[in-house]
C-alpha cells in the first residue's frame, strides 16, 4: 500500500500512461478529465482498497496525493 502503487492504479483507472502521472499531478487539470474519470477513480478505490470515496472527496482534492491521503486514512 504505497503512493506509487496508488498512482499506478489511478493511471490505469483513467486510461493514461503511468509515467505521465505523479503524486503531485493536479488530476482535474488533465486534458480529458471528466465526471466519468471521477467515477472510475471511485470504482478503483472500492475494488482495489475496499474504500468508499464520494464524488465530493474527488472533487475537493487537487493532487493524486490528496486522494491517496483520504483512501489510506479510510483503509486503516
Amino acid at each position: 500500500m504505497t503512493i506509487e502503487n496508488f498512482v499506478e492504479k489511478f493511471a490505469f483507472a483513467i486510461e493514461v500512461e503511468t509515467v505521465s502521472l505523479t503524486a503531485d499531478t493536479e488530476f482535474k487539470a488533465l486534458p480529458n478529465w471528466d465526471s466519468l474519470n471521477a467515477l472510475s477513480v471511485i470504482a478503483m478505490a472500492d475494488a482495489d482498497y475496499g474504500v468508499a470515496l464520494s464524488g465530493e472527496d474527488v472533487h475537493s482534492s487537487t493532487t493524486i496525493n490528496d486522494v491517496w491521503k483520504i483512501v489510506s486514512a479510510r483503509k486503516q
Binding site: 465526471s35 471521477a38 467515477l39 471511485i42 470504482a43 468508499a52 464520494s54 464524488g55
Partner: peptide, 13 residues
C-alpha cells in the same frame, strides 16, 4: 450492480 459509492455518484451525476 455497481459498488454503492459508484452508484451514489452516478445517481448524483
Amino acid at each position: 450492480k455497481l459498488a454503492p459509492a459508484v452508484r451514489e455518484e452516478m445517481k448524483k451525476e
